[in-house]
Simulated scan of single mutants.
Amino acid sequence: MASQLAQPELASVRRFEAAGFRAWPAANVHYDGTWLTRLTPAHPARRLNSVNPLDPGDVHHLEDRIERAGREFAAVGRTLTFRMSPLSGDAMSVHFDRAGWHWLAESLVMHRPLDDRLIGGAIDQIPMKDVPRFVGAAIKAQGASNILRPALTDILTAIQPEAGLFALEREDDEPLATAICVQDGDLAGLFEIATAEAERGKGYARRIVLSALKWARLRGARIAWLQVEASNERARSLYASLGFTELYRYHYRQPAET
């Protein structure tokens, strides 16, 4: 629970939360106190459409602020969603529990030192510069809808830190695996790692992750990190085998009537 974290741990959470916001920017962003609201009407992802409390002590006028946030989400056709990291604090969790809010989609934030021992055998790979081509490959690898193509393109072009777009493809240009690595100072964040369904279990995800991290290491990154859904056992097993360990968890909350 947030109240059990020592201050240095909370500072570490704040650092990785901020890096995550920079690496995966929402279309519209604003603050209510220390609550960061992120809205992206063109993309359904919860992390792009959620209220992110960033201070455990900022729990004043909860009902009024939650109602105001609900109107903002309704105006763009989204369900009010709070993303609950350790920065949200116990008081807000208790409030949502009493109101019967749903608990959804727990994820882990994992990290590890980015050293030569990890990436020594990685294959050198040059990131793609062709954003539309990468987006097409990523959508295929993920098995996602082409409807998301414009929104994903907008997200990638809005990333401010250096972003490496990586894809492994067959000779016929069909994607095997894709990944995004965002190098933000000494941090290398991995996002949207996906392997085409027919190609899973063949080591492509490991290969592309290591190549992406080698690229980031050569640019000065020293810590690798990622987010993974707690229910994704295959991905968690891969990351654990690469030496990633859990730093903290977050989950989403939505009103009981949804």
Rank of each mutant, 00 (worst) to 15 (best):
S3H: 12
L5I: 11
L5F: 15
A6K: 14
P8Q: 02
R14N: 07
R14Y: 04
R15P: 07
F16C: 04
A18H: 14
G20F: 01
G20S: 10
R22F: 06
W24R: 00
W24T: 00
P25T: 06
A27Q: 15
N28F: 13
N28Y: 12
V29P: 02
H30T: 07
H30I: 08
T34W: 07
W35E: 09
T37R: 12
H43N: 12
P44F: 05
R47Y: 13
N49Y: 11
N49M: 08
S50E: 03
S50P: 06
V51M: 08
N52Y: 01
L54N: 13
P56H: 00
P56D: 00
G57R: 03
E63P: 08
D64W: 08
R65L: 12
A69G: 04
A69V: 05
G70R: 01
F73M: 01
F73S: 02
A75S: 08
G77C: 04
G77Q: 04
G77P: 03
L80V: 01
S85C: 03
L87P: 00
S88F: 01
S88T: 14
H95E: 10
F96P: 01
F96C: 02
R98M: 12
R98C: 11
A99Y: 07
A99D: 14
W101K: 00
W101Y: 02
H102L: 11
L104A: 07
E106Y: 10
M110Q: 15
H111M: 08
R112E: 01
D115V: 03
D115K: 04
R117W: 01
L118C: 00
A122S: 10
D124M: 05
D124E: 14
I126E: 15
P127M: 09
K129L: 11
A137Y: 01
A137H: 01
G143P: 04
S145R: 10
P150N: 11
A151S: 13
T153Y: 06
T157N: 13
A158D: 14
A158S: 15
I159A: 12
Q160S: 14
P161V: 03
E162W: 11
L168C: 11
E169N: 02
L176N: 06
T178R: 03
V182Q: 02
Q183P: 02
G185K: 05
D186C: 05
L187Q: 05
A188C: 04
I193N: 05
A194P: 06
E197N: 10
E199V: 06
R200P: 08
K202A: 14
K202T: 11
R206M: 10
R207Q: 14
L210R: 07
L210D: 07
L210Q: 09
S211G: 04
K214P: 01
W215F: 09
L218E: 15
R219L: 13
G220H: 06
A221I: 02
I223V: 11
I223R: 02
L226A: 04
E229L: 12
E233Q: 11
R236N: 15
L242S: 00
L247W: 02
H251V: 09
R253K: 12
E257F: 13
